Computed example of a mutant assay.
Amino acid sequence: MSNAIRFGCSHLTSVKRLYNVVKDALNLRLKLAIALEERRAASKANSRVEQWQQNQNLERGNEVRCDEGAKFKLLRA
């Protein structure tokens, strides 16, 4: 008798079950990795926006201040 006949359907069923469990675990791991990467990218983008805003605030200073005439009056908004 060959091995395929000796093991029969029960062996093939258990192999298929094991295959499906491993496949599901890998799919879950892949989904988690993708979600983590998306979070990291969003966090990095948010960090860049905050840094840019801080830099703009430092460079521009007080945006309400306007120069007018020879005496350079401070205008209130």
Rank of each mutant, 00 (worst) to 15 (best):
M1H: 15
N3Q: 14
A4P: 00
R6Y: 07
F7Q: 12
F7P: 00
F7I: 09
G8N: 00
C9Y: 08
S10H: 02
S10V: 08
H11I: 05
L12T: 11
T13P: 00
S14G: 05
K16P: 01
K16I: 10
R17N: 15
R17V: 11
R17K: 14
N20A: 09
V21E: 14
V22M: 04
D24C: 04
A25H: 02
A25I: 01
L26A: 13
N27K: 11
R29A: 05
R29C: 03
K31N: 14
L32Y: 03
L32T: 08
L32K: 15
I34C: 02
I34T: 08
A35N: 08
A35M: 09
E38D: 11
E38R: 03
R39P: 00
R39W: 01
R40Y: 01
R40D: 01
A41N: 02
A42Q: 08
A45Q: 03
A45N: 03
N46I: 06
R48H: 08
V49L: 07
V49Q: 05
V49N: 04
V49E: 04
Q54T: 08
N55P: 00
N55Q: 08
Q56H: 03
Q56L: 09
Q56C: 04
L58Y: 06
E59S: 11
E59M: 10
R60P: 01
G61N: 01
G61M: 01
N62F: 02
E63T: 11
E63Q: 07
E63D: 07
R65C: 07
R65A: 04
R65N: 10
R65M: 04
C66S: 14
C66E: 14
E68Q: 13
E68F: 09
E68N: 12
G69H: 02
G69S: 05
G69Y: 02
A70E: 14
A70D: 09
A70V: 13
K71C: 10
K71L: 12
K71E: 15
F72Y: 09
F72H: 13
F72E: 14
F72V: 15
K73S: 15
L74T: 04
L75D: 12
R76I: 15
R76Q: 15
R76F: 09
A77G: 11
